[in-house]
Amino acid sequence: MNKYIPIIKINFQNKLVYFWDLIGNNLFFILIMFVYLMLWKSIYADGNSSIAGITLNQMIWYLVVTELITLSGGLIHQEVNREVKSGNIGYLIGKPYNYILYCFSCFIGDSGVKLLANGTLAIIIGFLFVGPLEGFSWATFPFVFISILLGWMLNFFIYMLLALTAFWTEENSPFFWIYSKLVFTLGGMLLPIELFPMWLQRISKALPFVYVTYTPARLAVDFSFGAFIRGAGIQLLYLLFFIALTLFVYGKGVRKLNVNGG
């Protein structure tokens, strides 16, 4: 860990240097949440005090959490993608560290700043738009935060796995696009899966995308220890699965690495 902690610190500090980039990301967060607020206020204005058991207050806070996770993810997977395609990874894998842990350390340092900044902004937005979260208790906050972190890390390793497909494919950007849309829809980022038809709910719950955004967001607005144990347990299992799969794919990719002109 002595090799990776400095990497985290350097990336954390580098992110703070680009202050206006951070501000721009926050402004985008505000814009998205304002659009969501106007949309859902119009939907609830038809005399609906709740939809699928979810009030307007809970819906906005739910969307605050889903956007917090997705907008705080960072772009390290794009850098990995470029390094594999350019052949620069041949230089990096010769360094005295594990490349996957190196990328994860960069991710923590870079995206950690975003998570903290966006998390603070998310709380402010929620209070300004709809007031305090109904039924919120500080006693449950650590458990919700654990679920958010698990979803945040799961998102990274899925993106990392997709980035490593560059060992075999010339152009893998469509994989990132498809995955982001699956999180957007089946993952419940746009709206809770309770609003889906029952058959689609069953499909969504069987896939990993729902554990990136929906599980921590739903837990935030309707917490129960039973839901936390089930949700966090499945999140952890999926996280371990994608870590193992990422390491496996990386090992296979490095063995067949053929750098042209580098």
Rank of each mutant, 00 (worst) to 15 (best):
I43A: 12
I43Q: 13
Y44R: 00
Y44Q: 01
A45C: 07
A45V: 01
A45Y: 06
D46V: 04
G47S: 07
G47P: 07
S49M: 14
S50T: 13
S50L: 05
S50H: 13
S50G: 13
I51M: 08
I51C: 05
I51P: 03
A52S: 10
G53L: 07
G53Q: 11
G53N: 10
G53Y: 10
I54G: 01
Q58M: 03
Q58H: 03
M59Q: 14
M59Y: 08
M59P: 11
W61C: 10
W61M: 10
Y62Q: 04
L63H: 06
L63S: 09
L63R: 05
L63W: 01
V64C: 12
V65K: 11
T66L: 09
E67S: 14
L68H: 07
I69E: 04
T70I: 08
T70M: 11
T70Y: 12
L71E: 10
L71A: 11
S72N: 03
S72I: 02
G74L: 01
L75I: 14
L75R: 14
I76V: 15
E79V: 12
V80A: 14
V80L: 15
R82H: 11
R82C: 03
E83P: 05
E83M: 08
V84P: 09
K85A: 12
G87C: 10
N88F: 14
N88S: 13
N88H: 13
I89G: 07
I89M: 08
G90C: 05
G90R: 07
G90K: 06
Y91H: 14
L92M: 15
I93V: 15
G94M: 14
P96V: 05
P96G: 05
P96Y: 03
P96M: 03
N98D: 14
Y99V: 09
I100P: 08
Y102R: 09
Y102M: 08
Y102K: 05
C103V: 10
C103K: 15
F104M: 04
S105C: 00
C106V: 07
C106L: 10
I108A: 05
G109C: 02
G109M: 01
G109W: 00
D110N: 14
D110W: 02
S111H: 01
S111A: 11
V113A: 06
K114H: 07
L116A: 14
N118Q: 04
N118R: 03
N118S: 04
T120F: 11
T120D: 01
